[in-house]
Amino acid sequence: MTARSVPGDGLGSPSVGRLGLGGAPAGAVTVLYDRLRAEERLLLDAFERIGVPVDERYAPNVTFELGGGANEDWSGQVVLERCTSQVKGLALSRLATACGATVINAPDVIATCGDKAATSAALARAGVPTPRTGIAFDLEGALALCDRLGYPVVLKPVVGSWGRMVSRLSDADAVEAVVEHKAVLGGADHKVLYLQEHVVKPGRDIRAFVASDATSGDDVFAAIYRASDHWITNTARGAVTSPCPVTDELADVVGRAARAVGGGLLAVDVVESDRGLLVVEVNHTMEFRNSIDVTGVDIPGRVARFAAERLGV
């Protein structure tokens, strides 16, 4: 398997013509991104602070040529995958892993976290508490499932973030309308109707950040409350953040959730309920710009150290 990059891959003239992700400087972490957001800038600064060189790769300009048999440059390399596009990130993660690189997060983790049905299946298999959840494929099945879950129900796209297209449906009429819209307008991912019990939460949820490793264990290193008058408590939709203590209960449930999806650097969303803490979502490309000041935790620094440790630094 060989890989190559095209000119203009963001590395300046020395990189032109270099092979794919292979050829990164020894001891460097490759940061693979498709948009230089606040998080990526903070991560690059964090690597600089700890003295770890970074090989920046602009994902849209990376190309792979498969089947050439020259994959020797990849072993020992560490890639931090930071694409906003899940499709690009997963594809590149799979190919880089196949070429011998250690990718954070691993492709199986991305695939699991990037699909809410897969996440729910992994959490259920591991016995992690979650809201009651199910899937259906047509209106009849959806209505039957909603009757069992009880109204209101929450309908989410299996792929998507930031609260996009998340609907709270109060009755069968609403379910019928949204399912019809999905059938007519939706793409392939909307063929799976992901339905969840509506958990009455105290006007907030919890976002916890965890570094989970099979060898070193789970480090839940920061957490925030996200409060909003809206029932969707996402900072992308204006929720207000405040520090959340990492209690033993929170650390336990977040660590179990992280292990259930395969570990790595993850942001776990949790709701408080009368049944205790319930895991709603596990995010594989954590956003943290709104969580650094409020927690006082150097989140990009923790991410950079996790990646550097995989280099043996």
Binding site: P7, G8, G10, S85, Q86, S161, W162, A267, N283
Partner: peptide
């Protein structure tokens, strides 16, 4: 806008979001 090429320097209108974008 976002920088999509350095040589020559090229900008493209930056989409606000896409279906597969997320965390």
């Amino acid at each position: 806008v976002e920088v999509v090429r350095l040589e020559p320097l090229t900008f493209a209108e930056a989409p606000e979001e896409d279906e597969d974008w997320g965390e």
